[in-house]
Design a binder for these strands. Structure first.
Lengths: 214, 214
DNA sequence: TAATTTTAAACAAACGTTTAATTAAATTTA
DNA sequence: TAAATTTAATTAAACGTTTGTTTAAAATTA
């Protein structure tokens, strides 16, 4: 048995993690049994305890697994002298949307955990990652304000809530959106591309009109 | 036993509904047992089946109960000739935030159901309520565009996603916000007021800068 | 051979629901 | 009004399943 925090998972472990992630996202953590996971992943039930210790530790492993490789991208952007603050923010929006659309299951799972109050271990993981992202966006905002590009009195947490909240809500209710706008003839792939484009353009417009000094 | 759709619930039924709502919000639907609910509400387990038929039908009753009385407010606003489109939108923002802050448990529950894919009966309920709200906001937008007050090419669904998504994310991560901004000395009541004020001001600024024609 | 992985079976605990008996309330009858 | 009857509400106990986890043996790999 391996420690949940270790990020070196073997093939079988990754297979379990990704299957569990998909099922948890679709039916919720408590709504998914370890037997569901075992069957879907084509492994024996005991393997879950064997590799992860428990169902609880499995979901912690999922979060550690996804968060650890979600982190990097912002770091490169922030110190790029050639980019304006506006461009940096646009890059962050793009990369956030990209990650979210590619990992819809995981973001669904995060939204579930966020809405449930009684989760301790995972909250800690999310807190750190969130605080780190927040600090970086804050720096970009301050840089823009210093250059007279952005208006002042902007709450970073609210700005982040807009980016994350709008994106999450929009993708979570994509079934609604598709039905409401009669887009059922579009292929799944095209629809995803359509959502991504639409959301990206919108958020950039939104940020620009909110932040720009008139 | 009464039909779940009926809105005439007696005292005891309301007590069960409100207890269940609170527990579902805190621990999730599958994470809450009927025994939890019975104990917390101070009733016998069998009363849940007796009054609602099943745990599944109980959560449907919660949604019917809350949605039925959440509806009204927008209707009065839309046909008020004395209000400008901008004022109407501001009123909608205020009344949405007010409802959400007063019924945080229910909104938490809605967010949970939204993130879980496999819920049919409830999705239908939400769809109707959502489509209705969307149509009304659409009308206000069109009125504002006609009067030259609002810019064109605004997707109503995305605008709603911003209002709902930002609000939900912000309140869902209020624990984070409190910790991040060192506000733990503030009383719970004051903190809620603070959040409400902050969110309202922000969303109005956001809407105004996005919609206003420059 | 020794260590690791995989298996089927078993575990007790918890689950949602139902039962059948009892109490309380409402209605009807005298 | 009082008693009798019917309906509704409440209870503790039991139901069969399903739950997450463990076991000890078998198979595989090193």
């Amino acid at each position: 048995m391996q420690e949940a925090k270790t990020i070196d998972y073997n093939e079988k472990q990754v297979q379990i993690i990704e299957t569990a992630e998909r099922l948890f996202a679709a039916k919720g953590f408590e709504g998914t049994s370890v037997r569901d996971i075992a069957q879907e992943a084509g492994i024996n039930i005991a393997m879950i305890s064997y590799y992860f210790g428990s169902k609880e530790k499995l979901i912690e492993a999922i979060f550690a697994y996804r968060i650890s490789y979600t982190r990097l991208t912002i770091l490169n952007v922030i110190n790029d002298e050639a980019m304006s603050p506006t461009e940096k923010l646009e890059r962050i929006i793009d990369s956030y949307i990209d990650k979210m659309m590619k990992n819809q299951c995981f973001y669904r799972l995060m939204a579930q955990e966020r809405s449930i109050l009684e989760v301790q271990n995972i909250s800690e993981l999310i807190y750190d990652s969130k605080a780190r992202n927040m600090e970086m966006v804050k720096k970009i905002l301050q840089e823009g304000q210093k250059k007279g590009e952005f208006r002042k009195n902007i709450d970073v947490a609210l700005l982040m809530a807009t980016m994350i909240g709008t994106s999450n809500h929009f993708t979570s209710s994509q079934a609604f959106y598709r039905r409401y706008n009669n887009l059922k003839d579009m292929s799944d792939e095209d629809f995803q591309k359509y959502l991504k484009k639409k959301l990206g353009t919108y958020l950039k417009t939104l940020f620009k009109s909110l932040l720009t000094v008139q």
